[in-house]
Design a protein around this nucleic acid. Sequence first.
DNA 1: CTGAAAGCGCTTACAG
DNA 2: CTGAAAGCGCTTACAG
Lengths: 338, 338
Amino acid sequence: MAAKPPPRLVDVAARAGVHVSTASRVLNGSVDSKVREETRLRVHAAAAELRYRPNALARGLKTSTTTTLGLLVRSLSNPVMADMARAAAARAWELGYVVVIAEDDGVITQRAWERLVHEGRIDGMLVASASIGGPILDFVDQASLPHVFVDHVHPGSGRNVAMREADAGRMAAEHLLGLGHHHFGQITGPPAFDSDRRRSEAFRETVIAAGDPAPVRWVADYTEASASEVAKAIFAAKNRPTAVFVSALSHAIGFVATAQRAGIRIPDEMSLIGYDDDPLLDYIGVPVTSIRMPLAELGRIATGALIDQINGSAPRDIEIPTLPIIVPRSSTATPNGG
Amino acid sequence: MAAKPPPRLVDVAARAGVHVSTASRVLNGSVDSKVREETRLRVHAAAAELRYRPNALARGLKTSTTTTLGLLVRSLSNPVMADMARAAAARAWELGYVVVIAEDDGVITQRAWERLVHEGRIDGMLVASASIGGPILDFVDQASLPHVFVDHVHPGSGRNVAMREADAGRMAAEHLLGLGHHHFGQITGPPAFDSDRRRSEAFRETVIAAGDPAPVRWVADYTEASASEVAKAIFAAKNRPTAVFVSALSHAIGFVATAQRAGIRIPDEMSLIGYDDDPLLDYIGVPVTSIRMPLAELGRIATGALIDQINGSAPRDIEIPTLPIIVPRSSTATPNGG
DNA sequence: CTGAAAGCGCTTACAG
DNA sequence: CTGAAAGCGCTTACAG
């Protein structure tokens, strides 16, 4: 049944003919620890032969350290979060950490927190789930646990890692303005999502700064169905915009499908620019011009910042320097096919 | 900086006026451990007041148990895997476990294994990544670590947790046969994917058993682009099938887009049935009839089976009993619009 | 330069 | 019914 137990430090010490404390010293390799070169070699050889790896629990108990990070996400099924999460996990692995996931479905949050934080399982937490005013803040605030907010910013926390959302909104507006549009609409997500608010606001401000009327704004959940409902309202409006900015992948998909069914031709009758890029966007009714965000960098940098915090750095807000990229496809053109 | 340290068992013992070993006994609550009712109450009260939670590392070190599961997946960005993974994680949480994720990008596998298994971080592993003959088997075989293969079956391992793929293929075929089709095509994924092979094979066999010619078979990677290339080949074939079964969500999306661009009308000129369901399928050029698999059950049951193994049960192959469901949309009809 | 000891926070036989 | 002791596998001052 159970195979032979893994080698312990005492086993490598014995094989190298030294005391366990000496073995520990060389393996933890503080450069200035005075141990004879020959001894060092013997210990390393023994460890390699035995394929020794220190028991994480024992080490952790002694050092009050787990080399484990928590990742709290709203939904792994969200492709955008998934991209961020994989980059975060990959970076954590590179830096010697392991990551445990907890889905924040609103119910589990408190229990997740207890199990991960109170039981001492993690050194820090990436919080990618909390919407503004969500309950997570209550836990996080009382804890001394290092943590960062990823993507979903908490103003004043001093722990936000965010992308250049304002630039995304601005670039979307400039793209459409550059094509000659003057009459805009936009679909945003629910108001609790701060990152959405920042890009939507910048879109609006850029349009206004250009001297055009403020975009008409609709709100939709992050589902194709909700975006579809809103799209119908937009198509039925008396004074239709000639160009629309939507704030999520699901919005773009729902919008295009609904336009096709309503007989609205994109981009001839209406231009559409989306937020969040995906290969999929090349393969729907009208390939959708969209804004690609540096999600992998977000994950990587957030993880790095968290680990810095664990190592004693003071938390600070970070903005990912990389600019968003507009991926041009077929859904944007000059107004009226002009 | 660091807040007050979490309470230890010795703290609750002191507050309850008992020895730490007594406190441990009541908190671990073996029913038959003879401890006076009054003592029991005092200890529980003290633990509650202090919000005591046992340190996972200390307990784990003592009991050689981590209440942590590993989850090895190919890519979190795969929406199907994501659905399975969330259900698995949710079930693990219910059963008192925590889950650490490791992405198997082919490079990290060995290091992931060392870090998770050799360092004693996990009690068992859900392997959802390994394609047939992949390197993971080398590690897994030598280890005595409890593990199950999820979705990607390893014949003979006796540890497979799989869905009714053959039924999925059969049902797809029967759906099309029932509409009157006699001339079939199919797109499968790369041959290394066993679950795909099982459904594709069943599709083929069902068609043959009905007395029709064997479906013409094409192979595509699991990308829209690859499916699109294959779709072009299908449309260009001299003797085109009237109905096609595709083996992945990305296949369906690529296929529909390419059909529209080629002017092939679905379902009038060709019927399409897909595998893997998604709300998205309601919102592409032609809403695609597809087969929904019980992914959440897969994740839940696999997790349960793994934990059973950890608790001493012998591993065994498990088939998820739930039948797939056909979600009818607009992409399938009688041949020739007839 | 290396060994011996203490201790991280638990659990679990073993005494009493 | 409850306490005292040992020990899980490490790391780290402290001696020597």
